[in-house]
Simulated assay, not measured.
Amino acid sequence: MNSTQHTPRRSTATRRAARAALALAVTAFLLPAAGAAAAPPTSSPPMSVSSHRQQDISIPLPGASSAEGIAKGKGSTFYAGDLGRGDIFRGDLRKGTAELFIDAPDGRAAVGLKADVRNDLLFVSGGATGRAYVYDTDTGAEVADLLLATGSAFINDVTLTRDGAYFTNSQAAELYFVPVDHDGELGDPETIALTGPAKALTGAFNLNGITSVDRGRTLIVAHSAKKALYTVDPETGVSADIATGALPDVDGILAKGDTVYAVQNFSNQVSRIDLSKDLTRGEVEDVITSPLFKVPTTVALFGNTLALVNAKFGDPEPGGYEVVTVSAR
């Protein structure tokens, strides 16, 4: 069990000092691994390719210095993170607007995000800090600052189940579970050691995206270095292959029923994968592309619309950062 620090809900003080050094450090950490994952697949299943240009919309994140994570909130609300600064933006998909919501303290990062709409909580993966942060989505106040891992760590993504939040670490063969009770109270983080194929540490970037199926009884993780998806038993840490064929650049993932949307960052596409009932196989039924994709990393689903963040990794002049919406079909 890891140490935790809980803080009372309070207003977040405004801190707008530049944190460019941290942003550069996090981006530099990401680039070698993403580049390594960019090799073409050795084999690819048959698939169709869709481009939804007429429905594509770009929503700017004003003042963002970087971007990586996105989460669906209540209704058409979304949250997006500034990767290097740790700041959180709140936007409205229908209105096509976004604004700074949480000005995070210096030294934080924001990678994967998930919103617990029942308890008005936002869970944020802290990247190389080895931490996770939890905020109140009503006020923006900090609820908890959680130490998940020490040493070499990159807390990458998070998913929510009825029991709590599960986080990935791209530098270790383990997940972290933070219990959340029915009143929204957080328990102490627990470490889940992985066995099976998801345990492999074969590149600079290993476990990445995470989602859940079967009412949270099974987790699915993306492994960037292996270009693969695996199931994980959250009770035991036992993992197993999902046969999909190679998924180069696989990053954030999201499950809806028997469908998984797998974002492939440097490939600038999202694979829509139909899972078998026993979760041992997945068929890529569609590849979603957009002229607005500029290294998308994570995805949220709003009805029949996907919302993704453009991270623009490797772009020498990335310009502003934005959320892009495309049709999910």
Rank of each mutant, 00 (worst) to 15 (best):
Arg162Ile: 00
Lys95His: 06
Ala262Trp: 07
Gly63Ser: 03
Asp103Ile: 00
Ile253His: 03
Ser152Glu: 10
Asp163His: 05
Asp92Tyr: 01
Thr325Pro: 08
Glu142Gly: 12
Asp145Ser: 11
Ala243Gly: 00
Lys114Asn: 08
Ala110Asp: 10
Ala21Cys: 07
Leu122Ser: 10
Lys95Glu: 07
Leu122Cys: 09
Gly237Pro: 00
Glu190Pro: 00
Thr202Val: 15
Thr244Gly: 01
Phe101Ser: 04
Ala18Gly: 08
Pro179Ile: 12
Ser327Phe: 04
Thr129Arg: 09
Asn156Ser: 12
Thr298Asn: 14
Asp274Ser: 15
Ala243Trp: 06
Gly107Ser: 02
Val213Thr: 14
Glu174Ser: 13
His52Phe: 10
Ala13Ile: 08
Val270Gln: 13
Gly319Phe: 04
Asp157Tyr: 05
Ala21Leu: 14
Ser267Pro: 05
Ile192Leu: 15
Asp157Phe: 12
Asp116Leu: 10
Tyr321Met: 03
Ala225Met: 08
Arg108Trp: 08
Asn119Met: 03
Thr14Ile: 14
Gly187Met: 08
Arg162Ser: 13
Pro32Ala: 10
Ile253Ala: 12
Asp87Ala: 01
Gly91Val: 04
Lys294Met: 11
Leu30Ile: 13
Thr191Ala: 13
Val178Ile: 13
Val26Ala: 15
Gln55Ala: 11
Arg16Phe: 12
Gly126Val: 09
Thr298Gln: 14
Thr12Cys: 09
Ser170Met: 00
Arg162Val: 03
Ser212Tyr: 03
Leu229Trp: 10
Ala222Gln: 02
Phe167Ala: 05
Gly151Ile: 08
Gly320Pro: 03
Pro291His: 14
